[in-house]
Design a binder for these strands. Structure first.
Lengths: 201, 201
DNA sequence: CGATTGTTAATTGTCAACAAACCACGTTAA
DNA sequence: TTAACGTGGTTTGTTGACAATTAACAATCG
């Protein structure tokens, strides 16, 4: 069994740019030029193009043919309301499915996530908190049916995290995560799902 | 004012392959080789790669790095159930929003779609029916807020139409579409939304 | 006989050069 | 003055060649 040691260049570039966009440092409309990025990453424009196309399909970039891509604007209130319900549906379904097996491995990973989350909060590592926040929800979605929902879930949550102003409420978000996990430990299915849905805002 | 006469090669290729996959002729797991497609379309591998990446993100193809892409399998019952709810949420929200304006232009387009749908049914033009079925729902989604929901809606419905066995019920599907439009004409918001949600299965 | 290791053919990943499209700017003419 | 029209420079779109990786098969060893 071998883990992939060196992922594709396009994946490395996409991951790097994803974090850069989600950090919220870049204003909507900021252009991403292929040549500039190619020189910055030390690769040719090929992998850059693939990465930009990926991020565009994920909703983080907005592209017009023959013009280029720019950082996408945050979704409108209407669109955001729809997206919130989509996330609730997906993650709620995943959590409901977990209660059919109650696999302990997931609980361990969630506990580890909470511990690291708490540490990052105390250290005020802002970017790390965003990562851990998304990782928490990703663990839930991945637990259901070998992660078959991840591909539909990812574009949804990425659009929500685009210029997400709620990351400031670090402690509050942590407590809500912890409450969900506590309900899972207690075997309270309805309570866990209700807490999770209420947490997604 | 000029319409784009010749869209990008990658878009032409993607559209063509999309229809080929949705037609249901190709069994899940059928490989898509870049070189083969490049020769078939008479272009180089570049645009083909972009098209395959697009279709992969849309859920129609399943790809592994350094190996290639294959026609994706139909979603599992669990995943399909989730996707059904996602479509209901998106299209229901779009329809609810239409009732705030009741723009007549949409009704005209839907009536035209129904007429053409009926004709294609009578002529048993199977592929055309699939197109019109999706076009009907697309019109609904595009009507809300300048089509801002289309990008999240498209990957969802494409996954549902992947090897969709329900297209055989041509007349039944037409009648359900017509019932939704009739409720819209009558100004019955709750009824239209209920009919639409019940139609998505 | 089974498992492991080389070898090879096929396929994807990457690159650099060239072609086509777009945008801003200055010019021209009504 | 203003609108239309070229024009130059910048950026994306496309291409073909080359490198890296994979999977299947053959040979080898325990």
């Amino acid at each position: 069994m071998r883990m992939k040691l060196v992922p594709n260049l396009q994946e490395q570039v996409a991951s790097h740019l994803r974090l850069r966009i989600l950090s919220g440092q870049l204003a909507p409309g900021t252009p991403f030029r292929e040549q500039v990025l190619a020189e910055e990453f030390g690769v040719s424009r090929g992998p850059i193009r693939d990465a930009l196309l990926t991020l565009t399909k994920e909703g983080l970039l907005h592209g017009r043919p023959n013009v280029g891509v720019r950082v996408a604007a945050a979704p409108s209130p209407f669109k955001r309301a729809v997206i919130v319900n989509l996330r609730r549906e997906i993650e709620g379904a995943a959590l409901a499915r977990w209660f059919q097996t109650r696999d302990a491995a997931l609980l361990e990973r969630l506990d580890a996530n909470l511990a690291e989350y708490q540490r990052a909060c105390a250290a005020s590592e802002f970017g790390r908190v965003v990562e851990l926040d998304m990782a928490f929800h990703r663990l839930l979605v991945e637990s259901a049916e070998d992660g078959s929902l991840v591909d539909v879930w990812l574009p949804v949550i990425l659009r929500m995290f685009l210029r997400y102003s709620r990351h400031r409420m670090l402690v509050e978000s942590y407590q809500e995560h912890a409450a969900v996990v506590a309900a899972m430990h207690a075997g309270d299915e309805a309570g866990a799902i209700a807490l999770l849905r209420a947490h997604i805002v």
